[in-house]
Design a protein around this nucleic acid. Structure first.
Lengths: 231, 231
DNA sequence: CATCTTAGTGTATTAAGAACACGAACACGG
DNA sequence: CCGTGTTCGTGTTCTTAATACACTAAGATG
């Protein structure tokens, strides 16, 4: 069945920049999929695809993410819409880009094997990408760095229970600068957004650190009172 | 001539939230156009329209803005893309929203008469709007307030030459809080982004204030050195 | 020349950010 | 069980930025 319109229409797609944090490797990572069709057959690309006429943009992004990488229930936020004329060699395609933050600890390497061909890459060592995906990735990286300091989205990259050192390292990796240990702990604890758990790290070859979790309910309550997060 | 595709496609539009500043009325204003066709015939709406297949999104926004309101050469930035299923009663339409900042002093009331039916409204006294335009406007207003403090975009709302009092009032109107006169002047002058002109206000019934202009070249130079603007 | 309105200016106090080092805990290996 | 190695957890001082606050000067008007 075909569909006919009076004027030509651009096709509409979504693309997702998925960030993951490798605390061991001290590295920010991106989830890419290998293209199985032309154009750019065999090249790596951002997971994404065409928006169906009966689903919202966000639904399309979540669907494509699951189909291509197996990921579900991730933090997802709209990034920017890219609409230059020649960004796809086939025809005019406008893409609404999203960025996602995932806890590598939960959805560990499963994502890589589940789908046809998906893999994590260090943001500092990326393969050649299809389309204008390098540009989309740059915008996403910039947004992540910018937003991280003003909104508590970084917790989406950590396991539910984390140590203060892991939290600090997350900020250091993404912001690409060192933070002072004592000042960092003073500041983050003063916000009263973390709940200290009766639990410590396990299986570490040194003194185990106390575990904390982020108190989302309390954060939302504070927000209404004009509280503003800042690292 | 018609155009046929294998799968149904959403239509793509752009909409613009145009902000103007009325320094006399101490008021932030929005430019709206009255709809000449169904749906929502006769209702006020954001200027906007369909994206042609051979123009970029930004070009479409600028074109629609000029066609419907006569405005040219305004500050324009992408806001967000709205894609819920029922936002247009006719069919699936996805809209890429932009926001614009204009100097009311330059493009004064011409805009209102030039086009069929365009007019400025106080953001605190808006008429009933078509589609999901109230929501788009809210997002734009939130973005403006958020961005104003961290980027020197407010100058786009003022005449090229302005007084420090006007500058302060602009921040007070949009941020909706009072600022201390001496602290404000101290801070803004310390940034060294303003050029003091050999010129003062004219036609005022009291002591005339010194005029300043924003030094865009110097701002860009400072940016590269890691400078960050903040009010 | 008296009146009215806005312009323009400095200091003292308070809060936040930055700099900085060492003893305690715990696992491990000999 | 004792020494070694690694990370944990903690306070104070100094510096810088933010806040609070009020009067004289300039110039237009009648």
């Amino acid at each position: 069945m075909t569909h006919t319109y009076e004027y030509p229409r651009a096709a509409l797609t979504v693309d997702c920049v998925v960030f993951g944090l490798d605390l061991d490797g001290d590295d920010l990572q991106i989830l890419l999929v290998r293209r199985g069709i032309e154009p750019f057959l065999g090249k790596w690309a951002l997971p994404g695809g065409f928006v169906r006429v009966d689903e919202t943009l966000e639904d399309a992004a979540l669907r494509e993410l699951e189909e291509e990488t197996g990921l579900r229930k991730v933090f997802l936020e709209q990034l920017y819409t890219f609409g230059t004329l020649d960004r796809d060699p086939r025809e005019r395609i406008v893409t609404v880009a999203y960025y996602a933050l995932v806890k590598l600890s939960d959805h560990n390497v499963k994502a890589a094997t589940d789908a046809s061909d998906a893999a994590w890459f260090s943001i500092h060592d990326l393969p050649e990408l299809a389309f204008d995906h390098p540009q989309i990735l740059d915008v996403a990286h910039e947004r992540l760095r910018g937003k991280l300091r003003w909104q508590p989205i970084g917790f989406e990259l950590l396991p539910k229970k984390f140590t203060l050192t892991q939290l600090q390292r997350m900020y250091e990796i993404i912001l690409e600068r060192q933070l002072d240990k004592r000042n960092f702990r003073k500041k983050i604890l003063a916000m009263e957004l973390l709940v200290e758990l009766d639990e410590v790290q396990r299986d570490v070859a040194h003194r185990a650190a106390r575990l904390y979790k982020f108190d989302d309910r309390h954060y939302r309550r504070l927000l209404k009172q004009g509280f503003s997060f800042e690292i």
